[in-house]
Amino acid sequence: MPLVTAKRTGLVDQVIAQMRELVASGEWPLGEKIPPETELVNALGVGRNTVREAVRALSHAGLLEVRQGDGTFVRATNEISGAVRKLCGPELRQVLEVRRALEVEGARLAAGSRTDEDLRELTACLDSRDAAVQRLDSADVIVTDAEFHRLLVAASHNPVLISLYEGIRETVASSVATTFNPEIPPEQHVSHTELLAAVRDGDPRRAAEEAGGFLDELLSQVGSDPGQAEESGQ
Rank of each mutant, 00 (worst) to 15 (best):
I162K: 01
V143N: 06
E91P: 04
E91F: 11
D201E: 15
V133A: 08
L152I: 01
R100G: 14
T115M: 08
R120D: 14
D201S: 12
L161Q: 01
A17M: 08
D127E: 15
L11T: 14
E105P: 02
G45R: 01
D13V: 12
R205K: 11
G47C: 05
N42A: 14
K33T: 05
S232V: 04
Q14A: 12
A101C: 14
G202W: 04
T38V: 12
R205W: 07
A207H: 01
G10D: 15
T77M: 12
S191N: 02
S128R: 13
L136C: 10
I168D: 00
G69S: 06
V46R: 04
R120L: 13
G112T: 12
P204S: 06
V84S: 11
G233V: 02
G82W: 01
G202N: 05
G223I: 02
K7E: 15
L63H: 02
V143K: 10
F180D: 03
T5R: 15
L3C: 06
G112E: 12
G223S: 13
G26I: 09
E210Q: 14
Y165M: 08
F214R: 06
L126A: 04
V153G: 01
C125W: 01
H157V: 02
S138P: 03
E91D: 15
A107M: 07
A24L: 10
V15D: 03
A61H: 09
I142C: 06
S25T: 14
L195G: 03
I80V: 15
A198G: 03
P186E: 08
D145I: 00
A111E: 05
V46W: 00
R120A: 15
R85A: 13
G106Q: 05
D118M: 04
S138L: 13
R75V: 00
P29Q: 06
Q188V: 03
Y165K: 05
L109H: 02
T123P: 02
P90S: 15
R48D: 03
V222N: 02
A83I: 09
L40K: 00
K33W: 02
S156A: 14
E187K: 09
D70H: 15
A101H: 11
N49A: 13
E103W: 01
A76H: 08
D145S: 12
E105A: 11
G112H: 05
H60D: 15
D225N: 15
V41K: 09
L58C: 03
V190Q: 08
P186H: 07
D137L: 01
